[in-house]
Design a protein around this nucleic acid. Structure first.
Length: 701
RNA sequence: UGCGGAAUAGCUCAGUGGCAGAGCAACGGUCUCAUAAGCCGUAUGGCGCGGGUUCAAGUCCCGCUUCCGCAACCA
């Protein structure tokens, strides 16, 4: 078995600016790579950008610039943001790289030759205003667009399909045989349950999207953005092209005579399905070994809510950089948030972590130890390990244990636990120093040997701890290392080979400066609040600020390559392109103007709810019988069950759209729809009603 | 509604049948090498609710509540 390591982040979709979510995944990948490399493991860290698709095309159009110029600009912003965080990736793949495009076409051809891609055609309902496909209840012959309330048009467009259905059983067997393939386990269960529910063939080409990779021999079509994007993990290593290299070395491995891969994909939970279902299916089809693990991390939360541009609560990297150093940001994200779970991120918690762990913990240990080296030993660290100090052996033993635990937990991606272990080493030696009172020993010439032993142990513990934390705190670790008079830098030394008390050439300790400042919580929090108020005001004054592709696309911690062509994939086309419901209602500018004739077509009437009951197996649906002044009551289904109890709405006077085409949902026919305001982030419905009594059936104009 | 998770100290979380824990925050004490840091001590819990199995249950079983995810659902 080869001892190599390959880690990837998702490639980031270039229709949004980098934020803390991108930083999170990428910091983890970086900290992992530094860890592996420090332990002598040949490692490769890939990140990059996903640059194709209709959303990108549109974004550039909005800005009135060439698409290539638009993507180049955003890519620069990502690179700058990551560089500021001390991230050292080995390769930055862009899906617009010629080598990648060439390789994706090769993959396509291979899949086609193996019989997994066939040409068919896609049929569905299309809304010209949304410019996307809509999912429609079977049997509905006259569907309307939910956003625009206009009739949908029937569209049939030629499309290539990938035989995803052929892989259902093989995937299930694979999950079964490789429990480590999807982690954590809850995510694995989710994937298995999804696959068990059935896989349909996947539409993998589009004719209406131009900004993409052309289908070989059929340039009318471009290749499905996800097929394009996922392939980056192998094309970046030279699969299917001559430009890049490393596929043999970093992707391929062999265990028990079977080809497997070392690859570790870090992904956010919002793009799990693409990585855990589609991607392995593509690879199985191409007969390329599957990645070892798709590890799903959680979302960063603020105030219990997902952070995102659409919720307006995202923590800005800019703000972080103003108040925290890179190492602080890196440490906090890895220490505070258990990897794999959602994690709350607050400035208060960050400041508390920095003060308690970094300033009072690591920073102060370095400071007190080095000051004593300077004062008592003229700056030359003693190396006396004859255990004359009380419990020096205990300190050493505890550190050895901490080191082992650190490595075990870190390798299992439990960064939080690993760091906890390292800090137990710090607490230990702090106590040791206090117990032995070296400042008293220093005043007693007869206690010189013991003083040497105490300071030797303190200094040695510090050295080992600094080695451990270097992958997480590269900058500070190096700074302390240099203050300690040690040669080279900590990331060059394998902590497993750093033996206790080994002979070292150590320069004089001269300048001792605090590694971390103590942060003033009240001051920083109030500064941030003030500046965020300003930012919020600035944002509010631009009601038409472009929104992201879809709510789902923007709430993730990874700006995921949400595929515009996902529309063609299920073929459900739930909001994957910009649509009006992504805009804040309070600030929405009216879109297209309509003529009075258009409005007259909509028949709004007053009605009274006579009966209401929940629809089985539906969370949101109430089945209502309403009196519209007609001979018999009408049945209407309304998606308000989450906010209105059935008994609560009975007797209410409401407004309905009376001439809407009938539509079946969950087995019941709905003859119209009721009007309700859609309030706040979650679109909480508030029924429209009247200020005075109105007869049922009255027309509204 | 179905499937899968979760619920433990003020906060973040450990704890797979054997005396309920850690870190942070709080409070009291103490040291002076150190960044008003360190160290010592204190307090803090109906382990979501109700049943059951067991000599013994955060822990296993059944039912329920609330929250989260996925699916369905919003005409």
């Amino acid at each position: 078995m080869k001892n190599t390591f390959y880690v990837t982040t998702p490639i980031y979709y270039v229709n949004a600016e980098p934020h803390i979510g991108h930083a999170y995944t990428t910091i983890v990948a970086d900290a992992l790579t530094k860890f592996k490399r420090q332990r002598g493991i040949d490692s490769f860290f890939l990140t990059g950008t996903d640059e194709h698709g209709i959303n990108i095309e549109r974004k550039a159009e909005e800005r009135g610039i060439a698409v290539k110029q638009h993507v180049d600009e955003i890519v620069d912003k990502f690179k700058t943001a990551f560089a500021r965080l001390d991230i050292n990736y080995d390769r930055w793949i862009r899906t617009t790289d010629a080598a990648h495009e060439e390789a994706v076409q090769k993959l396509w051809t291979l899949l086609k030759e193996k019989g997994y891609i066939y040409k068919g055609h896609y049929e569905g309902w299309f809304c010209g205003n949304c410019n996307e496909f809509k999912e429609v209840e079977a049997g509905d012959e006259n569907p309307t667009c939910p956003t625009h309330l206009k009739a949908l048009e029937r569209v049939a467009e030629a499309s290539y399909f990938f035989k995803l259905s052929a892989f259902q059983e093989r995937l299930l067997k694979y999950y079964e045989a490789h429990p480590e393939f999807v982690q954590p386990e809850a995510r694995r269960n989710e994937v298995i349950s999804f696959v068990k529910s059935g896989l349909k063939d996947l539409s993998v080409s589009r004719v209406s999207v131009k900004w993409g990779i052309a289908v070989p021999d059929d340039a009318e079509h471009t290749i499905y953005v996800w097929l394009d994007a996922l392939s980056n993990y192998i094309t970046a290593l030279g699969w299917g092209n001559e430009h890049f290299d490393g596929f043999e070395k970093y992707w391929l491995n062999e265990v028990d005579g079977k080809p497997v891969s070392n690859a570790l994909h870090l992904v956010g939970k919002d793009i799990l399905r693409f990585h855990a279902v589609y991607w392995p299916a593509f690879l199985l089809a191409a007969e390329v070994p599957l990645p070892k693990t798709v590890f799903v991390h959680g979302m960063l939360l603020k105030g219990g809510q997902k952070m995102g541009k659409s919720t307006g609560n995202a923590i800005k990297l800019e703000t972080l950089h103003e108040h925290f150093t890179n190492d602080m940001i890196r440490y906090f994200l890895l220490r505070e948030v258990p990897f794999g779970q959602d994690g709350e991120v607050t400035y208060e918690a960050m400041i508390e972590r920095v003060n308690a762990d970094l300033a009072n913990g690591l920073g102060n240990l370095a400071s007190r130890t080095l000051t004593m080296v300077k004062n008592y030993f003229a700056g030359q660290p003693p190396r006396a390990f004859d255990a004359e100090a009380d419990d020096a052996k205990g300190v050493r033993a505890a550190l050895t244990q901490a080191k082992e635990k650190f490595d075990d937990e870190y390798a299992a991606l439990n960064f939080s636990r690993a760091l906890e272990a390292a800090w137990s080493g710090i607490a230990n030696v702090d106590k040791f120093i206090t117990d032995n009172q070296p400042w008293k020993l220093a005043k007693d010439e007869a206690a010189r040997a013991k003083l040497e032993a105490v300071i030797s142990t303190a200094y040695e513990t510090l050295r080992q701890v600094v080695l451990l934390v270097a992958p997480v705190l590269p900058h500070t670790a190096k700074a302390i290392w240099q203050q300690m008079g040690l040669a080279g830098e900590p990331l060059q030394f394998n902590p497993r080979e750093a033996t206790w008390g080994e002979a070292l050439e150590i320069a004089k300790v001269e300048n001792v400066t605090p590694a971390f400042p103590k942060l003033n919580k009240e001051k920083i929090v109030s500064e941030i609040e003030n500046s965020e108020d300003h930012q919020a005001m600035a944002t509010d004054s631009q009601p038409n600020a472009p929104s992201d592709a879809s709510p789902k696309a923007t709430t993730g911690t990874t700006a995921n390559p949400v595929a515009p062509t996902e529309a063609a994939n299920k073929p459900s086309a739930t909001a994957t392109t910009p649509s009006s419901d992504d805009t804040k209602p309070a600030t929405v500018a009216s879109s297209e103007k309509i003529a009075i004739d258009d409005f007259i077509k909509v028949e709004l009437r007053a009605a009274t709810i006579l009966e209401a009951e929940r629809v089985p197996k539906a969370d949101k649906l109430l089945r209502l019988q309403v009196d519209v002044g007609e001979a018999t009551p009408r049945q209407i289904l309304a998606g308000i069950a989450e906010y209105y109890a059935p008994e609560e709405v009975v007797g209410k006077k409401i407004v309905i759209v009376a001439n809407l085409a009938p539509r079946k949902m969950r087995g019941f026919e709905s003859n119209g729809m009721l009007l309700a305001a859609s309030v706040g982030e979650n679109g909480r419905p508030v029924l429209a009603t009247f200020g005075e009594e109105v007869p049922n059936g009255t027309r509204l104009k």
